[in-house]
Design a protein around this nucleic acid. Sequence first.
DNA 1: CGCACATTTGATCCTGGTCAAAAGGCGTGG
DNA 2: CCACGCCTTTTGACCAGGATCAAATGTGCG
Lengths: 243, 243
Amino acid sequence: MISGPFNPPESCGDCPIRHRAICSACDPDELAVLETLKSYKTYAAGDTIVWAEETLTHLGSVVSGVASLNRTLDDGRCQVVGLLLPSDFIGRPDRASVAHDVVAATDVTLCRFEKPVFEDLIRRSPALLRRLLTKTCDDLDAARDWMLLLGRKTAREKVAGFLSMLVQRAVQQNGHPAKDGVTLSIPLLRKDLANYIGLTVETTSRQFTQLKQDGVIDLTSQKDIHIPDLAALFREAKELGGD
Amino acid sequence: MISGPFNPPESCGDCPIRHRAICSACDPDELAVLETLKSYKTYAAGDTIVWAEETLTHLGSVVSGVASLNRTLDDGRCQVVGLLLPSDFIGRPDRASVAHDVVAATDVTLCRFEKPVFEDLIRRSPALLRRLLTKTCDDLDAARDWMLLLGRKTAREKVAGFLSMLVQRAVQQNGHPAKDGVTLSIPLLRKDLANYIGLTVETTSRQFTQLKQDGVIDLTSQKDIHIPDLAALFREAKELGGD
DNA sequence: CGCACATTTGATCCTGGTCAAAAGGCGTGG
DNA sequence: CCACGCCTTTTGACCAGGATCAAATGTGCG
């Protein structure tokens, strides 16, 4: 989605996630405070940003790139339990650690605050706290939607459901309503994608092939995909209200 | 778990969930305010407490009983996306509705506030807001744990995982550390249990039979279960740190 | 160009689903 | 008190969707 190195914005006013991240709740005065406290950090694709159970020193938002939240069993089985896209938040204020690894799927830049500093911020700004609650509720709803996909959907529906989710998030970010279909880039390797939808790489790949043959999707490269008819994709995904 | 009709407490001080529900964040003054604003409502097992997408008039906590959060597809496939036990909270302050049905699994009593009243409360009490955020974060972590179970665990591990979760929640509520095993009651029908762990009733039943034959569990009746060795159960469930 | 890794395709197996029927529980009414 | 009927749970026989194992094809990079 972002090509080339990402340069952090000069000021919060120029920040690409200014109106969607938790700081969107802040007025200019508060923003001026954040400005002095924030710092940026960039990770390369594949880097682990946080290890599960590790003590967090910072909290913050994804400014660019995509990260996945991974929960892994001793025997190697792995489930991706969430995707962090730009404006999504990492960490919770009242716990020392998170319960899963956070891994950069692409190059990732974070806008961070030291944990005690952030805790002081939300103590002083109810708006910020309120915004964080809203975002957490949204994450919870998304996680529960995903439970339906993992527990009850077929392989084909899972792949279509994943793509539907990507499309919906892309539309809600870029805001283009899409007239003649949508083109987007899949920010995960097949392996990670499979771990996200609870399948193996092989079945995932087979379902892509099928959906392509059936004209639901069009792969221009392995990562770049074109969806000619959104309603058709949503129907395949059995989204509630997908028609 | 609760037998016979449940009588709401005379005052918040006598309430069984006083120290675990969101009101645990309140000082005596705040509690006195809540006291004048709350109301109780009881539902019979099987009743739908809230329909998905229906406009919520109240928010509140489960005082007694168990409710399940159900997400259902048009073709009838159904996934339970959460269990509400005593002290758990229903609803989110900033949305008009919830994304899933809330169904009473046993008889359920709620302690409720009218939505606008509750919104006013959290506007005036940062402690309450803060407590709500903590609970929501906990729910999110639990949902993500469940995604691992749904996406990556075998039928046997799913059943053992469900029982492990029940045990852990029972211990954290009743606080008894359990010397010679734990006895508890399963508050769901097999059908609902199956919908919670993403299996059919038949496989769920078969796994119970297996676990019984292997001495991991002991069914005294269809709902009442005794677990002689918690560590053994956790091992079956492949819980992180289950040994 | 050649190597390492990601993705796709193929052949076979096995876990869990489906369909069907029996057994167990429980409340109602004779 | 027991008989009947309804619903839940268990068990059985068979089937299929997705996993596993293996190999071929694609892709990016030094």
